[in-house]
Simulated scan of single mutants.
Amino acid sequence: MADLMTGTVDGEPASPVAAVRAVLPSLTPAAQSIARIILDDPGLVVRSTITEFSVVSGTSEATIVRTARALGFGGYSQMRFALAAAVAKEPERLVPGDLGPDDPLTDVIAKVARAESEALADTAAQLDPDRLGEVVTAIVGARRVDVYGVAASGLVAADMSQKLLRIGLSIHPFSDAHLALTSAALLRSGDVVVAISCSGETPDVLVPARTAADAGALVVAITNNPRSSLAGVADHTLVSAGRETAFRPGALASRISQLLIVDCLFVGLAQRTYDRADAAIRATREATDRYRNRS
């Protein structure tokens, strides 16, 4: 399943911890239990032979090998070496960073900042520039662009709409499933849909995206899970990363990484349409400046 992983280096995930976290929901129960141990303590894998890890995890060596392959590695040894390299590069990942109810605010600030910086770094490592370029090309040439997202992802959809408006690109954000379905049913070939969902399984986003795909539109998914139902519908999948904790559920943890992808799309689109974008930015800035000066 290595072909399902994004951002690979020599066939292995560029950010192994992020790669494990991304595909966790799609794994079998046995594989999920192994993956959670990897996420909780990647150093344990680094320090353990497969026999030792089998004892610690309570699973067979064959199950561990199958899980490593399902996670995008050639086997346990390859996974162990990749995690060792990641730990050597970022040893602080070995330190638990979950927020506790009694944490002082100084720790809250440090842990939240660390989690968000890790989410940004992991997303950047997984973001395929060629695929990003294909999405930019599709949006530039589209007759109509819709963006679907609900709850925290709905805020990202609105942010994308506002950003692109500043460079003269009009897209239509929908956070209501009924309205999204109404628009999706009227799309056709040459239109583009950007569907945003942390899990990739949100029905309010997934069903309109399927409807748009059936109507002939090109679908772009922004999701944490490259093996999700939404990724299966999409023509292009841009993978975000975010670590879920007790005080930061998945949708909130992934928002910062989704915004990074939107910002990269925005800059790519501004570059591709530079003359129009530059004129639009100047015109909108002048309009808002005049309004503030009058006020």
Rank of each mutant, 00 (worst) to 15 (best):
A2I: 01
M5I: 11
T6E: 09
V9M: 07
V9P: 03
D10W: 13
E12P: 04
P13Q: 06
P13C: 01
P16E: 09
V17L: 12
V17H: 01
A19M: 02
A19P: 02
R21T: 01
V23T: 07
L24I: 05
L24N: 01
S26Q: 11
T28W: 00
A30C: 08
A30T: 13
A31K: 04
S33C: 01
I34D: 00
A35V: 03
L39N: 04
D41A: 13
L44V: 05
R47G: 01
S48E: 08
E52I: 08
E52R: 15
V56E: 05
S57N: 10
T59C: 13
S60F: 08
E61R: 14
A62Q: 15
I64H: 06
I64Y: 01
T67D: 13
R69S: 11
R69W: 10
A70I: 10
G72T: 08
F73H: 06
F73L: 10
S77M: 14
P91K: 07
P91M: 09
V95C: 09
P96S: 13
P96G: 09
P96C: 12
G97K: 14
L99Y: 12
D102F: 15
D103Q: 13
D103I: 15
T106H: 15
I109C: 01
R114S: 14
E116W: 09
S117W: 14
S117M: 15
E118R: 12
L120S: 09
Q126A: 12
P129Y: 15
P129L: 14
P129F: 15
L132R: 13
I139V: 11
I139D: 00
V145L: 05
G149A: 07
G149S: 06
G149T: 03
A151P: 00
A152P: 04
S153K: 03
Q162H: 12
L164Q: 00
L165R: 06
R166D: 03
I167E: 05
L169P: 00
S170K: 02
S170L: 11
S170Q: 07
S175Y: 13
H178K: 12
A180K: 02
L181G: 10
L181F: 03
A184R: 07
L186W: 04
R188P: 01
G190Q: 04
G190H: 06
D191S: 01
I196R: 02
C198K: 06
S199R: 09
S199T: 04
S199N: 07
T202C: 05
P203Q: 07
P203H: 08
V205Y: 00
L206H: 04
V207I: 10
V207W: 00
V207D: 00
R210E: 14
T211K: 08
G216W: 14
G216P: 04
A217D: 02
A217H: 00
A221Q: 04
N224H: 11
P226R: 03
R227F: 09
R227T: 12
S229N: 05
H236S: 10
G242M: 03
T245I: 04
T245P: 03
T245G: 12
T245F: 08
A251F: 04
S254I: 07
L260C: 09
I261H: 05
D263Q: 14
L265R: 03
L265E: 02
V267P: 00
A270C: 11
R272F: 14
R272T: 12
T273H: 09
D275F: 12
R276D: 14
A277C: 13
T288D: 06
D289R: 15
N293E: 13
R294A: 14
